[in-house]
C-alpha cells in the first residue's frame, strides 16, 4: 500500500492551520451551549469532526492518525456514550428516572442540576458523534486507498 498522498498545496495547508483551531474552538462553544441555546452534542460533534477532516485533507491521513488513531477514536466514542449513559444511570441511582437530571445533587436547584446534567450528556454525545464521524471518514478514505 502506498502512503496516502499529502497535499502540497500551500494555500490549503496555511488555510487549514488557521482554520482548524477556530473550527475546533467554535465546536466547543456550540458544545457547551446546548442547554440554554441552539447548540448541542450533535452539531458540535459534526463541527469538531469537520475540523479534523479539514486537517486530514491538508496534512494527510498519516499525520491525522498521529493525533487521533482509529483505536483512540473507538475509545472516545465509547467514553462519550459511557458519559451519556453514566449520567442517565446516575439519575436512576439518585432515585429518578433515566436522564432525570433534576435529582442529581450537583446544583443548588433541580433546574441548575438539570443544566449541568444536560451539559454532561451533550459532551458525551459530542465526543461520540465526533469520533464516529471521523472514523467513518477514515474508513472511507482507507477503503478508497485499498487498505
Amino acid at each position: 500500500m502506498k502512503a496516502a498522498p499529502v497535499s502540497n498545496d500551500i494555500i490549503l495547508r496555511t488555510g487549514a492551520s488557521i482554520m482548524v483551531p477556530v473550527i475546533l474552538l467554535w465546536g466547543f462553544y456550540v458544545l457547551v451551549h446546548g442547554a440554554i441555546g441552539p447548540g448541542g452534542g450533535f452539531q458540535a460533534g459534526v463541527i469538531l469532526a469537520a475540523g479534523f477532516i479539514l486537517y486530514t485533507t491538508a496534512f494527510g491521513l498519516k499525520e491525522a492518525k498521529k493525533i487521533l488513531s482509529v483505536k483512540l477514536l473507538m475509545v472516545i466514542a465509547s467514553t462519550g456514550l459511557f458519559i451519556y449513559t453514566g449520567v442517565g444511570v446516575l439519575a436512576i441511582i439518585f432515585g429518578g428516572n433515566f436522564l432525570e437530571y433534576g435529582v442529581i445533587p450537583i446544583g443548588e436547584t433541580p433546574a441548575e442540576a438539570s443544566k449541568y446534567g444536560i451539559e454532561m450528556v451533550e459532551i458525551g454525545i459530542g465526543l461520540t458523534v465526533m469520533a464516529i464521524m471521523l472514523s467513518i471518514f477514515y474508513d472511507i478514505v482507507l477503503k478508497e486507498k485499498g487498505g
Binding site: M74, V75, A77, S78, L81, F82, T85, G88, V89, F98, T128
Partner: peptide, 12 residues
C-alpha cells in the same frame, strides 16, 4: 441502556 452500553464497550 445495557444494549448501547454493551455495544460501545465491545471495541474496548
Amino acid at each position: 441502556i445495557i444494549g448501547f452500553f454493551g455495544a460501545f464497550f465491545t471495541p474496548i
